[in-house]
Design a binder for these strands. Structure first.
Lengths: 163, 163
DNA sequence: CCTTGACCTTCCCATCATGGGAAGCCCCAT
DNA sequence: ATGGGGCTTCCCATGATGGGAAGGTCAAGG
């Protein structure tokens, strides 16, 4: 309280992590419970902001919250071997590369199709023809949906919430 | 019905779309309600399977269900101008390219960091040092979370479901 | 002293596409 | 007729995020 108390909104502004997310990170255990004022307001110290920026940077690099928990633990342990950190990073890199490859494949296929579609007012459309093609491997039964690697796409960019 | 009735499980097997998803597509209006037997079982005709394969193929190309609804409508309209289809496809391509670029950026940054980390049992770690770096643009306040483009990552690859 | 408005709190809900699982009914082959 | 597998619906979870309601708090200005 008094003068220098950093509230959650202030912390959000200073770290680029939304207040909503800060509360959520605390609730799920990624971050320790913040200290509270008598009236229940969360207060943050500089060290906490430091941690929050760490989290944001890691998120920006695509790490899952789970991976960030590991990274944070390693960060706090000043005697940790850097090998552990590197391993997590390389796992993440592999993950990113895998997803990129998948998206690349889709993009290339679509580009090929779009190229062959004149896109005028005539109904002939190689794109639809391809989608409608029967002779497809009946079910390349992937236990892992190929979409899992995709994440939220176009979808609601069109509707109300306009993200 | 009698002999040749295709049940939802059979349709799933033949099209590569899970029964769960077939029901969901129906419930959300992507597909029209299936015909039912007296006892309530869904039955599918060859034309329905055709549609399901179309949907699966489109999903495999990363189209959102919403976009697929548009594609299906165009597909059914034999007089549609191919321009509409092409537009949807190009939007999708742009979307894919955007996500790829984003992932590429992350992957490159991480690769650079991982490269500079010797990854042995000493605690020096440029990766953690980078994450902990203070002088970051306070809040590159993107209205669109940079993570949105990422989708489900590493996360549960570690837990129970082991994808 | 009291109001106002900006902030904080918790809680619930939605997203997107997908799967898990329960409870109960149905159908066919033994 | 019984058993097992398939079908039905319904609820819940996922991951990370935002929206919004209902209500408490704080500080500044009247």
């Amino acid at each position: 309280m008094s003068e220098g108390a950093i509230t959650i909104g202030e912390a959000a502004r200073r770290t680029g992590v939304s207040a909503k997310m800060i509360r959520w990170y605390e609730a799920t255990g990624l971050l320790p419970p913040a200290t509270r004022s008598e009236s229940g307001y969360r207060h943050y110290a500089e060290a906490d902001l430091h941690t929050l920026r760490f989290v944001r940077r890691a998120r920006d690099l695509g790490f899952s919250v789970e991976a960030i928990a590991d990274l944070l633990a390693l960060w706090r342990d000043r005697a940790r071997p850097s090998a552990g950190v590197k391993a997590i990073a390389e796992e993440q890199i592999a993950d990113l590369r895998r997803r990129i490859t998948e998206l690349e494949g889709m993009a290339r296929t679509l580009e090929r199709l779009a190229e062959s579609c004149c896109g005028d007012d005539r109904p002939e459309c190689p794109i639809l023809d391809d989608l409608a093609t029967e002779d497809r491997p009946p079910a390349p039964r992937r236990q892992t949906s190929p979409l899992a690697a995709l994440g939220p796409r176009s979808a609601h960019r069109r509707d109300k919430r306009g993200r």
